[in-house]
Amino acid sequence: MKTKIFLLIGTLLLFTNCAVIRPGEAGVKQTLGKFSNKVSTQGTIFYNPFISKVIKESTQTNNIKLILSLPSKEGLSVNSEISILYRLELDKIPSVLENLGQDYESIITSVFRSASSDVCAKFFAKDMHSGMRAKIEEEIKTKMKGNLEKQADGIDLIAVLMKSIQLPRGLANSIERKLQAEQDAMRMEFVIQQAKLEADRKIIDAEGARDAQKILSEGLTEEIIKIRSIEAFNELSRSTNSKVIITDGKTPFLIETKD
């Protein structure tokens, strides 16, 4: 009976002093409060449950989502949904745990709040809703990275994304009116340009017709008219239709008759 009890206790100890590390995870052994420099991935870690434990952390890309009111240069508040994408560097996980603890996401959030306030205060509210947003995101990311490295090295910031930006109602209406006015101006400019092109086309057509008439009139000399008249008489002589020709010998005037 005692043997069975010892076997049962030994089996329980065997299963309680090992940890399974799954794909996308990393395990760090902590013994008497001190973290091991060895980081284990995808496998089993054996440890003494009385003096040690295994801390598991994700090595995948993580996303911290926030909804904040960001200040602008003119003193307005801009509401925005924020995504902070980060990843723990595998070989530096012990440093992160030692300096920031397992609640390191709260540290990342605090650093973001400070960095975003400093950066956004240098830009106008409309910049956060325009092509300047990418620049604002990059500056926040750079400032966050510098502040985090002062506390712990091992958090790889991938991106800071500002989404669903909501400008103050008055400013949003002003921007819409401005954009509408710009579109109307561009449309009117296009209409004017088309009208100018049409006017130029008519002028070119008129000049072409005038030049053609001028060339034609200059080319119709008396000799040319006589030659054309002779050619016309020759054609008439070969015609089978009956015609009455009234002429002064220079130009014919024809009256066609039917048989």
Rank of each mutant, 00 (worst) to 15 (best):
T11V: 11
I158G: 07
V20I: 14
L97D: 09
F50S: 01
N48S: 06
E138A: 14
F50G: 03
L100H: 04
T3R: 04
S237R: 10
A206K: 05
I215G: 08
R201F: 14
S40D: 01
N63W: 00
L13T: 04
I45H: 00
S174A: 14
L197M: 13
G146N: 05
K122T: 06
Y86H: 11
I225R: 05
E138V: 05
V28A: 02
I64L: 11
I158Y: 00
L148V: 03
G33Y: 04
V96I: 07
N63H: 10
L88S: 07
K178Q: 15
A159G: 09
T31H: 02
A232L: 12
N62H: 06
N241Q: 15
D118E: 15
E231S: 12
V54A: 04
F124K: 01
K29V: 11
A125R: 00
S77W: 07
F15Y: 07
A172L: 08
K73M: 10
I67T: 10
S83P: 01
S83N: 11
I203Y: 08
D259W: 08
I55P: 01
Q193K: 09
A181V: 03
T247A: 06
L32T: 04
K73P: 02
D248Q: 02
E57C: 06
L66I: 06
D91P: 01
R187P: 08
E149P: 02
I93A: 03
I84G: 08
N79P: 02
G10D: 15
V191G: 02
I192A: 13
K34W: 08
M1Q: 07
I51T: 12
K250T: 14
E149I: 09
L12V: 14
E25T: 06
I158H: 02
A19E: 09
Q194L: 14
I192Q: 12
S80R: 01
D156S: 13
V20C: 09
A19I: 03
I204F: 11
G154Y: 01
K178N: 14
S114F: 13
K126T: 15
P23D: 11
G154S: 05
Q183K: 10
A172H: 08
S114H: 09
N62P: 04
T109G: 09
S80C: 10
E235L: 13
Q30C: 12
V111K: 01
